[in-house]
Design a protein around this nucleic acid. Structure first.
Length: 559
DNA sequence: GCCT
DNA sequence: CAGTACG
DNA sequence: AGGCCGATACTG
């Protein structure tokens, strides 16, 4: 291999070069050893993973509410607790009375303010619901059934009433009756909502996104401020109606005063002052350019700026040697990595990966996850999950696959490779009761390689008229037992995934990550995927096992 | 910035 | 250790 | 007032 990709420690010629050269020695994938017998021929039919075999097997065992949820002595106590609305909703959802630990508003004494006239509209609403529901009332409902919440429609759950009018008479009489809040927005967990990519409020969301982005770059608060915006955006993204008033905004989860304000300004003036400023801010422009380099995030971007650099050319000419190897790759392929990848190319790349996997060992299953699975027409990268029904088949396979792909020039660089799971023998062990904290031991992770991809055919027969853009490809090897968790963990937007973890922890008393589900109490592993015969079926089982209603990947677009 |  | 990346 | 996903995992 090599030729085109010979070691090249030189900086790219200022003006971002596409093509050519490696960042430096660290990135070349050495390949020698004899090549594998070219036994191509790829019979695999479970190819693209978008296969919708849709096993009607609903599995009746969704009843045994999995983790006996810790502490049920909750309800035997003699203290009086006021719980949040979420506790009620979550409990309804879960079908059992959940531990109250994470939902207690007040304990011991009831600080109930039966007449909350102070506070924002939304807070009032929340309290009212909370109080009435804590008393066991069935809140007013009479909502029609919504397409977005079949679950709620059929459940006896109190279809969420929050309307403005609930407020004590006066003030908001004129508040037009808002469209009923889709019941799913009742949940604070975005993994319980339908969040499609399309939104009637896309323009408003775009404003929020700009502010969020600016917060991330120019504020040193560990991304907390930006996180708030991400949560708000995720809520609005799930709202199926065009927003018309600040109040309508403020009743959504994670959207309070600040967002009502922004909305009002946007509604009234057609723009948002802060956004305007951001858009004309030269510093933001520089920071953004830096931030878009792979392996450069907000800290490094600010650092670059502080050194007096203002654009990519400055980075290359003044700082090349200070860049990490990965950052150098990021700079070299700056334009390529920003370029989106059409779905058919994603499929082509994935098929090649699968072919090489099956060359190492027959019988791999694959699902394309990431943006592709969420339905994006243009993807930022390619993410595939590979798994094999044979227990031991995923051991060290990543290295093998990556090696072979590199040898054939599909892969030109590796950004990261992890083999932690293989090293350990892929046991799904518990982390408590064993040695846990110790990094690198006692834990279970996925084998994974993040690599830089090119079209090998084109590389071998260059066509002057055709570019060969580099792509980032994430190859994930999952043990079969928990492959459904891997698929689930890689098929949602960031907020969906974070909320999924939070939901599991707070509501189900388990820890979820892409390597499996474990009891919080003792760390023992829970097998939620028993009996499933393919990756998508396994993912469905994980939903069931977690007490979650199924969401199509296209409805996990929380950003 | 919102929630508890 | 801090910083970054992944969804 | 204190938390915000992962007792992430990797890199340097």
């Amino acid at each position: 291999m090599e030729a085109d990709d010979a070691v090249d420690n030189s900086r790219p010629k200022k003006r971002r070069r596409v093509e050519k050269g490696d960042a430096n020695e660290a990135i070349v994938i050495e390949s020698s050893t004899e090549s594998e017998p070219e036994s191509l021929s790829s019979p695999r039919s479970n190819l693209i993973g978008t296969t919708r075999p849709n096993p009607p097997a609903i599995n009746l065992s969704l009843t045994p509410e999995l983790p006996p949820a810790p502490e049920y002595d909750d309800f035997t106590g003699d203290s009086i607790k006021v719980l949040t609305l979420e506790w009620y909703l979550d409990s309804v959802k879960a079908g059992v009375l959940l531990p109250t630990k994470n939902y207690v508003v007040f304990e011991g004494r009831i600080t109930g303010k039966p007449n909350p006239l102070i506070q924002s509209p939304r807070k009032i609403l929340r309290r009212e619901n909370l109080i009435s529901q804590a008393k066991g009332d069935t809140p007013p409902r009479g909502q029609p059934l919504y397409k977005h919440g079949p679950r709620w429609a059929i459940s006896k759950s109190p279809a969420q009433p929050p309307r403005l009018m609930h407020q004590t008479s006066s003030e908001h009489d004129r508040a037009v009756a808002l469209p009923p809040l889709p019941p799913s927005l009742c949940s604070i967990y975005s993994c319980q909502r339908s969040t499609p990519a399309q939104s009637p409020n896309a323009d408003f969301i775009a404003q929020l996104y700009i502010i969020k982005h600016a917060r991330k770059l120019d504020r040193d608060d560990r991304g907390i401020s930006a996180l708030a915006y991400s949560k708000a955006i995720a809520s609005i993204q799930a709202y199926p109606y065009t927003l018309t008033s600040p109040e309508e905004v403020a009743r959504l989860p994670n959207c309070a005063e600040r967002y009502a304000e922004i909305f009002q300004e946007w509604k009234e003036t057609g723009r948002v002052q802060e956004v305007q400023q951001i858009e004309t801010d030269e510093r933001m422009k520089s920071l953004t350019e830096f931030y878009e380099i792979y392996d450069v995030a907000e800290k490094t971007a600010r650092q670059f700026y502080a050194r007096g650099w203002r654009d990519l050319d400055d980075v290359i000419s003044q700082g090349w040697d200070t860049l990490t190897p990965n950052q150098q790759i990021g700079v070299k392929f700056y334009d390529d990595f920003k370029e989106k990848i059409p779905r058919d190319e994603v499929e082509r790349i994935a098929a090649i990966v699968l072919r090489y996997a099956n060359q190492v060992r027959e019988g791999f299953h694959m699902v394309i996850v990431g943006g592709y699975r969420k339905g994006k027409t243009m993807c930022g990268d390619v993410d595939v999950i590979l798994s094999h029904p044979d227990e031991d088949a995923t051991d060290h396979v990543v290295e093998q696959i990556v090696w072979n792909l590199a040898e054939d020039q599909w892969i030109t660089h590796r950004l990261t490779v992890s083999t932690a799971n293989s090293e350990r023998g892929q046991q799904t062990i518990n982390w408590r009761g064993g040695m846990s904290k110790t990094r690198g031991r006692g834990f279970c992770t996925l084998d994974k390689a993040l690599v830089v991809w090119q079209d090998a055919e084109l590389a071998k027969n260059p066509d002057p008229g055709r570019r060969n853009p580099r792509r980032r490809v994430d190859i994930i090897l999952s043990p079969w037992k928990t492959a459904g968790c891997a698929v689930l963990g890689w098929s949602g937007g960031t907020m969906f995934e974070r909320d999924l973890r939070k939901y599991c922890r707070n509501v189900k008393g388990v820890k979820f990550d892409s390597t499996g589900v474990r009891r919080l109490s003792d760390g023992t592993w829970l097998d939620l995927e028993k009996g499933a015969n393919d990756l998508l079926e396994k993912e469905k089982k994980v939903f069931e096992g977690l007490g979650l209603e199924w969401r199509d990947p296209e409805e996990r677009c929380t950003g």
